[in-house]
Design a protein around this nucleic acid. Structure first.
Lengths: 196, 196
DNA sequence: CGTCTATTTGAATGTACTCAAAAGCGGTGG
DNA sequence: CCACCGCTTTTGAGTACATTCAAATAGACG
């Protein structure tokens, strides 16, 4: 596999320990893929066939509403997973899009192979349980933030939490993550810079 | 156990199959508790010691912001789980509150017993993986809804999805779930009733 | 019946959006 | 290397959605 599998293995090792054989077997179930900036990993209407782990680069997953506005659910950078989980689990058409924000390398496991993995190495049930617990917690934190903090505060917290974000993502994308218009984000930036 | 354990067992059986012995063992790890309306299952600052399954009644979990406003994260009715997951996993003080909205019966499993359960019956790793996957999906749907739909639409969808909600939860609570003030929800109700 | 809290109503305010236009920026081709 | 194109960002005016504050009304409960 011509890609840095170690990043994924070390991610997994934080939660469960694998023997050499198990590691090898796991790797045999993976496939690698590279995307160019702007290329889609998944388009609305397609079935999400893989769990995807980002080795390098950045993926953005978003929904498009009936007025054509995008709502960013996630920026997935190195060492993160990405997928449309509902589509993946039910093998029905996805409602979300996943696009590469940079040239991006990923490792993928198909639903079929993942089920094999669960059967052969049940420890992976634990690994993904822990992953989804953590993912669930962050989603709830985000909900709480949207419910309790005005846009300006959310923007400041976002900038603090993801300092690299300004360089990697466009204003428009960040706005669509925060749930505001790019115009309004622009005015927020001006306002907060004056305060410094 | 003087409570309807069957509801929990049948919930679990939808995802994994248990032998009679496993079922018995699992039940032996549970404890039951009853709460009166308005009683707290968990208060901010306490450590969340249990995963809680609602047998009957209703729990509401919410955060309180610095201005004293409540933000409802969940209404957990029969056949649902409730907990402050971050507090439960890390055994640190909880930031959320969980309160009974009605007289409520629950079954609980402690973190300690849950770890025993995972060791003795690894199938439960799978069960909770599936639970958290589903929970994760709903949280994301809620985020997408908040990002893409105005309050009026969110209210209508909420009423449709939880038709019993108007009877079981106060307007104030529903407003705090939707992310709006009770006053504004009141005006939305008036408006939408006129349309009929 | 009285008290407490929830709900309704209305006016004034503020946050965030829409629409529109100008300015900036990056890439591409001549 | 410059000119042009498309897209993003900025700016501003007008508007709409939602909040705050305040007061009246309705409901729940002892």
């Amino acid at each position: 596999m011509g890609m840095n599998v170690d990043l994924l293995i070390s991610n997994i090792s934080k939660h469960i320990s694998l023997t050499a054989e198990e590691t090898t077997f796991f790797i045999s179930l993976l496939q690698s893929r590279s995307l160019k900036t702007g290329e889609f990993l998944l388009r609305e209407g397609e079935v999400c066939k893989y769990e995807t782990f980002v080795i390098q680069g950045c993926l953005r997953s978003y929904y498009q509403d009936e007025n054509g506005f995008e709502h960013t659910m996630d920026f997935s950078i190195e060492d993160w997973w990405s997928e449309d989980l509902y589509s993946f689990l039910t093998q029905t058409p996805s409602r979300s899009n996943i696009i590469a924000g940079e040239n991006t390398d990923v490792l993928q496991i198909s639903k079929f192979n993942l089920e094999i993995l669960y059967q052969k190495i049940p420890k992976f049930e634990r690994f993904f349980r822990l992953c989804f617990q953590n993912a669930y917690i962050s989603q709830r934190e985000r909900i709480n933030l949207i419910l309790s903090a005005p846009a300006e505060e959310r923007y400041l917290l976002f900038s603090k939490k993801y300092p690299y974000s300004q360089k990697r993502f466009s204003q428009k994308e960040i706005a669509s993550y925060l749930g505001i218009t790019p115009q309004f984000l622009s005015s927020l930036k001006k306002k907060t810079q004056k305060l410094k």
